[in-house]
Computed example of a mutant assay.
Amino acid sequence: MDLKEFLNLSAGKWFSQRTNYFVGGEADNSKADITIELVNPEDIKAVELCKKHNLDPQLSLGGTIQSWDNSVDWGKPKQVGSATVVLVSNSDDDTKGKLIRPQDSKVCGHYVLGADEALTLTIKTDEMQAEERQWFASDNLRMRTTVVKFHDGRKQTSFYSEIRKAPPANNE
C-alpha cells in the first residue's frame, strides 16, 4: 500500500474508542465520532501551506481534515474540533516526508510509511513531542497508538480502535 492508498482508506466516518493513560496517573477512556476528509494535493489549502513553509507544492501528497465529536460518550464533557494535516514527500522517497498544519509557523513534524503499511507521524511543538502510529487491521478497522512526551517530564500514552461506520442505506 502506498501513502495515497492509505489516505484514501482513512477517509470516511468512524466510531472511535480510546484508552488514555498518563504515566504516574490514572487511565481514562472515551468514545467519539470521527470524520476524515481528504485534502487533494492540488487543493488551494495544500498549495498555500506548502508555499507558507517554502516547500515545493509538486511534492504535496495531500492530506486530511479530521473532525471529532465525543458527544456520543455519555457523562463526559463534550469536545468538538478538527485538525488539518498536509503531507509533503521527500523529493526522492514518498514514503517519508514532512508534516505541516495551518496553525504552525514552521514544519511541525515528519511522517514515515513503513514496509508494514503502518503510518508513523512525529510532531514537535514548544510544549511536547508526539508520535502516532496508524494501521489497518482490515478496511473497516483502524488502530492508532500515541505517545506524547511533554517537556515538563509528563508522558501520556493512548490506544485507539476505530470502526468504520457503514454509509446510510439509500431508500429510494
Rank of each mutant, 00 (worst) to 15 (best):
K52P: 04
P102M: 12
A27I: 06
E172Q: 08
N170V: 06
V85D: 00
N40Y: 01
S71G: 11
A11H: 03
V107L: 03
D126H: 15
R144V: 05
D104E: 05
D94K: 05
V147W: 01
K78A: 09
W74M: 11
V88H: 01
E5K: 15
A83D: 09
Q17C: 12
S105M: 08
Q134E: 13
Q58V: 12
R154Q: 12
L99S: 00
R101Q: 14
T145F: 06
F150V: 03
G81T: 10
S67H: 01
M128E: 15
A115W: 14
V147K: 02
A11S: 06
T122L: 00
I100Q: 00
Y160I: 02
D28T: 15
V72P: 06
S158P: 02
N70H: 10
D94S: 14
F22D: 05
K78E: 13
P41K: 03
V107H: 01
N140A: 14
L119M: 12
I44P: 02
M143N: 01
E127H: 07
N29P: 02
D139L: 11
L55M: 03
D93N: 14
K96S: 05
R101K: 12
T64L: 03
E172W: 11
R154C: 09
E48I: 10
Q79A: 11
G97M: 04
I100N: 08
L99T: 02
